[in-house]
Simulated assay, not measured.
Amino acid sequence: MPVIGHKESMIFFVDGPGGIGRTSLYHIVLATLSKTNHIAIATATSGIAATLLPGGRITYSRFKIPLTPDASSICSRSKQLDLAKLIRRATIIIWDEAPMNMRFVNDEEFTEFIQRIGDGNELFIMDDLIKLPPSMAMQWEGQHSIYNLIDQVFPSLQEHANDARHMVDRALLTPINDDVELLNAKIISQFPRDEFTLHSFD
C-alpha cells in the first residue's frame, strides 16, 4: 500500500452492487494492517454492516456525529479523550455503507433508534435480540401481511408502475434469495400489463 508506506493522506471510495466483494476487501485490508501493527478503525452506517467488520462499530456512535448534521456541525468528541487519541494514531478509517447517511438525515426516529443501539442503550429482550419499535414493524397476519408490506413500500403500485422515480426511490430488502423471488413474483403480478421476459447472454 504505497499511500500508507509514504504516510500520505488520501480518500478512496469503493462503489459497486452487492456481492462484488467489498466486505472481503475490507477484511483483507484490516488483516494486513493488523499484522504490521497499524491501527485501523472499522465503522459502518448500519448496524448489520458493522457486525460484518472485525471490531466494527456504527459510525454515528463511534465518532459522535450529530443526529441532524448541517454545514456547521462538529463531532462531540473531546481531543483529550482516549478515542480521540486513537483516531489521531489510526492508519486507516473504513466507513462502510456511507451513502446510508441519506436515511439518517431524513428519518429522525430511525436515527435515534440506531444511535441507542450503537451506544448500547437499547434494551435487549433475550440473547442480544432487540425489539423493533411498532412504527418499524408490521403485525404478521399470514400471507396477507406480505401484500400489506408491498402496499406500504409501493403504495398505489398500478398507478405508478410507469413512474421510474417513484419506483427507484423504494426497495424491499430480504436476507435470503427465496424471499426476493417471492416478493418479486407478487409485485410483478400487480403490474397492469402482460408480463414478458427479456433474455441476456455474455
Score class of each variant (00 low, 15 high):
residue 192 P to T: 05
residue 188 I to D: 06
residue 126 M to H: 13
residue 196 F to A: 09
residue 169 D to E: 14
residue 61 S to E: 02
residue 131 K to Q: 14
residue 115 Q to M: 14
residue 163 D to R: 05
residue 50 A to L: 05
residue 201 F to Q: 10
residue 100 M to F: 06
residue 81 L to H: 12
residue 33 L to T: 00
residue 31 A to E: 13
residue 56 G to V: 02
residue 30 L to Y: 13
residue 77 R to W: 09
residue 126 M to Q: 13
residue 129 L to H: 03
residue 201 F to I: 10
residue 192 P to S: 01
residue 88 R to A: 08
residue 178 D to G: 01
residue 9 S to V: 06
residue 173 L to K: 15
residue 145 S to D: 09
residue 57 R to A: 03
residue 197 T to L: 15
residue 20 I to E: 04
residue 27 H to A: 05
residue 20 I to W: 09
residue 35 K to N: 10
residue 14 V to C: 07
residue 58 I to E: 02
residue 195 E to R: 15
residue 1 M to Q: 11
residue 74 I to P: 00
residue 176 I to P: 01
residue 5 G to V: 02
residue 140 W to Y: 15
residue 96 D to W: 12
residue 32 T to D: 14
residue 159 E to N: 10
residue 94 I to A: 03
residue 188 I to H: 06
residue 8 E to A: 10
residue 200 S to A: 12
residue 179 D to I: 08
residue 158 Q to I: 09
residue 89 R to S: 14
residue 68 T to N: 11
residue 147 Y to D: 15
residue 138 M to V: 10
residue 193 R to S: 13
residue 152 Q to F: 13
residue 195 E to W: 09
residue 20 I to N: 08
residue 96 D to M: 11
residue 96 D to C: 12
residue 74 I to M: 08
residue 49 A to Y: 09
residue 73 S to F: 09
residue 14 V to E: 00
residue 178 D to E: 14
residue 32 T to W: 13
residue 82 D to A: 08
residue 149 L to Q: 03
residue 105 V to S: 06
residue 119 D to V: 05
residue 147 Y to V: 15
residue 6 H to K: 13
residue 201 F to M: 09
residue 70 D to F: 12
residue 162 N to H: 09
residue 14 V to R: 00
residue 53 L to F: 07
residue 151 D to C: 01
residue 179 D to F: 07
residue 21 G to Y: 07
residue 81 L to D: 14
residue 143 Q to G: 02
residue 183 L to C: 02
residue 2 P to E: 15
residue 52 L to T: 04
residue 68 T to S: 12
residue 163 D to A: 04
residue 13 F to C: 13
residue 113 F to Y: 08
residue 85 K to T: 00
residue 179 D to W: 08
residue 171 A to G: 11
residue 185 A to D: 12
residue 20 I to F: 12
residue 146 I to G: 02
residue 18 G to D: 04
residue 98 A to V: 12
residue 171 A to F: 07
residue 129 L to T: 11
residue 186 K to Y: 07
residue 109 E to M: 14
residue 190 Q to F: 06
residue 110 F to L: 13
residue 40 A to L: 06
residue 120 G to I: 10
residue 70 D to E: 10
residue 146 I to C: 05
residue 104 F to I: 05
residue 143 Q to A: 14
residue 170 R to D: 00
residue 89 R to N: 12
residue 87 I to L: 11
residue 132 L to H: 03
residue 191 F to C: 10
residue 91 T to M: 05
residue 74 I to E: 08
residue 14 V to T: 01
residue 78 S to T: 05
residue 117 I to T: 02
residue 64 K to Y: 05
residue 106 N to R: 12
residue 160 H to P: 03
residue 163 D to I: 03
residue 29 V to L: 15
residue 107 D to M: 08
residue 143 Q to V: 14
residue 53 L to K: 05
residue 182 L to F: 05
residue 151 D to E: 06
residue 26 Y to N: 02
residue 9 S to C: 11
residue 153 V to A: 03
residue 177 N to Q: 10
residue 37 N to I: 00
residue 174 T to M: 11
residue 146 I to V: 15
residue 130 I to Q: 00
residue 28 I to S: 11
residue 166 H to N: 04
